[in-house]
């Protein structure tokens, strides 16, 4: 039998362990938050004063004070829209096929699953080199908007497939059974029940992967996106620049004025990313309410 004293001692020891772990966890959170805050404050203090309507609507210039971000901002928006238009249908279709049409435990399915997970971890520069070889050279798309979008689409495809599969997997099997038992075909079951229920999750995955693509620099440099573009893209085959490229270019200039421009560009890029993330959260909550 334990005496009251023994139990008390044990409790003190257990609580101590609790305390230690809690402290470690809090420190972890603080490190992450401080880093983020430092980054934000640094970029904001340098860049925010530079941002005005003229900065947003001016083309690049050799004079830092006259240079603006217009072609990069518009280029990024075009690029990201086109990327999503290419990657989303393909990614969602692949996810539907893998989840609903193939048998879950088949060997092939497992091999595909592992490979997609690996693809999601491949460094983006590799996708850039692939894009350079396949889209820019072999398909002769040159350094065009389309070549950039195709490259970024390849980059985010694995993420879209993985997140869409996970969203589809959360739809309980009993719902599929209910539909089949009422005489629904496979496609009717997917279209009427599985996709609507998985939609918030799929959408979140799409927006998060798109907001990752918007900040990608390396693949665009690899395919040779231009750094000085004084016009807006006028078609799929048009040369283009994008926000990260423009920032990269400004940072590498010796003049102090361009560094301020770069900071301002970073603020714009951050704002765009946060906006997309906020949109993801909003849409997810909106549709979750509708479907539960």
């Amino acid at each position: 039998m334990n005496s009251t004293r023994q139990i008390k001692m044990r409790l003190i020891r257990q609580k101590w362990g609790d305390q230690v772990f809690q402290t470690i966890a809090v420190i972890g959170v603080l490190i992450a938050l401080t880093t983020l805050a430092a980054l934000l404050i640094d970029a904001l203090s340098d860049g925010l004063p530079r941002i005005d309507w003229k900065f947003l609507t001016s083309f690049p210039s050799r004079k830092p004070a006259k240079a603006g971000i217009f072609s990069a901002l518009v280029g990024s928006l075009y690029l990201i829209t086109l990327t999503a238009l290419i990657a989303v249908p393909v990614g969602v279709a692949a996810a539907i096929y893998l989840e609903e049409y193939t048998s879950q435990n088949s060997r092939i399915n497992r091999i595909i699953e592992v490979n997609i997970a690996n693809l999601a971890g491949v460094p983006s520069i590799i996708y850039g080199l692939l894009g350079l070889e396949v889209f820019v050279r072999a398909m002769r798309l040159e350094r065009s908007l389309l070549a950039g979008a195709l490259t970024l689409a390849l980059l985010i495809l694995p993420i879209i497939i993985i997140s869409a599969r996970e969203a589809i997997r959360t739809v309980p099997n009993s719902i599929r059974e209910a539909a089949y038992a009422l005489g629904a075909t496979r496609w009717q079951t997917i279209q009427d029940h599985v996709l609507p229920m998985a939609f918030p999750g799929i959408l979140t995955g799409i927006i998060l992967s798109v907001s990752r693509a918007i900040g990608e620099t390396a693949p665009l440099i690899a395919i040779g996106a231009l750094t000085y573009v004084a016009f807006l893209p006028d078609g799929l085959r048009s040369p283009f620049t994008a926000l990260p490229i423009q920032i990269y270019n400004w940072v590498s200039r010796p003049q102090k004025g361009f560094h301020t421009n770069a900071a301002a560009g970073i603020v714009i890029l951050l704002a765009l990313t946060l906006l997309l993330n906020a949109l993801a959260i909003f849409l997810r909550n909106h549709y979750q309410k509708k479907h539960s």
Partner: peptide, 16 residues
């Protein structure tokens, strides 16, 4: 077959 033979399951599973 499923149109002619209907089924109700163990756990109620209405659509949302």
């Amino acid at each position: 077959v499923r149109l002619r033979v209907g089924m109700v399951f163990q756990k109620q599973n209405p659509f949302p």
